[in-house]
Design a protein around this nucleic acid. Structure first.
Lengths: 342, 342
DNA sequence: TTGTAGGCGTTATCAT
DNA sequence: ATGATAACGCCTACAA
């Protein structure tokens, strides 16, 4: 229950003996207002406990100074770091960030998109939910000309701004590394295959197998949401096979770490009997023993790039249809894959 | 650059041949509007691509349906999980959550508080920055009657709603556990001591030492922000002492894990030569080898409780000065402290 | 350099 | 069950 009613520019105007318009301008250091008036206004504003009313300002100016970020869930190191990157750029431009989690449910993503548009965010950055394959809920942003950038989990077959890493190449190199370490029965933990980021990781993996003339065995490819639980289950399934794999390349670190835990639990030697590699380079990867070989995924820079591209969109002329930024990854080789030493 | 101008309730009104007021009511299922009109309005709204203008609605109704959450940083498991708890409750009541990070800087916290108030959030949940010790920037919420709840890192000496765990008791039990394992030179990694949560953990630690007649040695207590880097440095300092400790009780898992890493690196046996205990029960704790003894901190429930208490505040009569909810913790004993077995 | 006045889209009040 | 009207707080042409 509110008590004191809020201070408005009218109150300040009365106090300083100028018009509300002057107050409005003075508070934003408008060039046409005298230094003195600006000082007086600001002093009064402070003393009276004035706080601008953002909704009112947004309504009138059609600018909210807010950008939206939609992700699967924030309690994953990769995602929360990515968001920090977005915030860094946004805050430096005087924008705030509105975050929404889909929990990997398309339905929640749709409702979040609605809420974001209703809030009239000045731009939207999206990393898609695992299962989303219809992108109609983003049309309203395109139609209204609201800047929209996809990052990491981007849509296939949609002309839109995107910021990604070269997942194919990273996966190819990682698989090649495992092959060079002497593995020839390499399993893969993948995410939903209509999600480009996961499809490309699998394709890079397949390409490396082919290039080295290794057989392709469907029973070695398992798909899930790549959570910690799922990682254990997937590993169990692999070791229920008549011939278990001698390596696992997981599309994320969470599941890879579970694989290591499973192996340790069952007395399977890593990397001797089973080499393991992940993707992301979470802190977990360097802490588990043996330390996890993985791909350094530049989460913070992805966030920064996505935000930068969002702001760039507003300046661009309308001829630019779409723009994809690709950031670099790096292979991080640790003990979990070193059968031969370096 | 926006193109199509937005659809408003006026457009719908014209289309359906009713007044804007009726449209407004129909869209919210107002009881006085006929089923038929409601249907017509909603159908037209959908077909015309109508999205309510939240800023306009907020301005007029003085309700934003948004609550703010201010934390140090979201890319920590404890924090992001806590936020998920807040979201669960908030979303179930039709509220959205606005998140701001202080990065443990008081200055940023102050500016975030301003932004939150300007956005006219309907309530605010705060976990304080490490260094904050003046709480004046929250006065405006109290004065205006905006519900305010502190969680985890709560202010000392301030009559306000709080949600915490019993840090003193948890720390006492943990220290006692270390003593029972035969440790008698127990070090402590603490956070800023004006932050209740860290002060109480230290006091619990001290109380346990006293109760067991162990000497108190200031050189064994080190304070920092408890990051991964700091954890290594603090451990280094302990092992530079003439007589290093035989146990470390860290006020969080991050620094505790660093201590284990340091020990492994230097060939110090855990728990034989050095027992280690943390606080929070992050996933890290169960993954590092040896697994980390720690205190299960109910992050998700803290978030849920904070949000529930926030919504409860609005109903309460004004006589209630303040309310503190205390949640349970649990000692999680793992290998890192088991000198004697269980 | 400052003031006047109208309107942003919605909802609350009062009327019918 | 529905309409007319004013107001929420701010911004911005246009005027002075």
């Amino acid at each position: 229950m509110k008590r004191a009613k809020q201070v408005t520019i009218y109150d300040i105007a009365k106090n300083v003996q100028v018009s509300p318009a002057t107050v409005s301008r003075a508070l934003k250091d408008h060039y046409s207002i005298s230094k003195e008036t600006i000082q007086n206004v600001k002093k009064a504003a402070k003393q009276m406990g004035y706080f601008p009313n953002t909704p009112a300002s947004s309504l009138r100016s059609k600018k909210t100074n807010t950008i939206g970020v939609m992700v699967s869930r924030i309690n994953r190191p990769f995602i929360s770091t990515l968001i920090s990157g977005v915030e860094e750029v946004a805050n430096s431009k005087g924008y705030h960030v509105f975050i929404a989690q889909s929990e990997d449910m398309t339905q929640k993503e749709i409702s979040n998109a609605r809420a974001m548009f209703s809030a009239r965010v000045d731009g939207l950055i999206v990393s898609l939910a695992m299962e989303t394959h219809d992108y109609g809920h983003f049309d309203v942003f395109l139609d209204s000309g609201t800047p929209l950038v996809f990052v990491d989990r981007v849509p296939a077959n949609m002309a839109a701004d995107k910021v990604v890493v070269d997942n194919y190449e990273a996966a190819f190199k990682m698989t090649q590394h495992l092959i060079e370490q002497g593995c020839n029965r390499i399993a893969h933990f993948g995410g939903a295959q209509h999600r480009d980021v996961y499809r490309l990781r699998k394709e890079g993996y397949l390409a490396a197998l082919k290039q080295h003339n290794l057989p392709i065995d469907e029973s070695l490819m398992i798909y899930s949401n790549l959570g910690a639980e799922e990682g254990l289950e997937m590993t169990q399934r692999l070791f229920d096979l008549p011939v278990p794999p001698d390596a696992i390349f997981s599309a994320n670190d969470t599941a890879a770490v579970s694989a290591i835990q499973f192996a340790k639990d069952k007395g399977i030697a890593i990397p001797k009997e089973l080499a393991v590699a992940g993707f992301n380079n979470d802190r977990l990867a360097s802490i588990i023993a043996p330390a996890l070989t993985t791909v350094a995924n530049p989460a913070f820079d992805l966030g920064k790039a996505a935000a930068s591209q969002l702001f760039a969109q507003r300046e661009e002329n309308d001829m630019v249809a779409s723009n994809t930024t690709v950031l670099k990854t790096e292979l991080i080789v640790r003990e979990s894959s070193l059968k031969k030493g370096r």
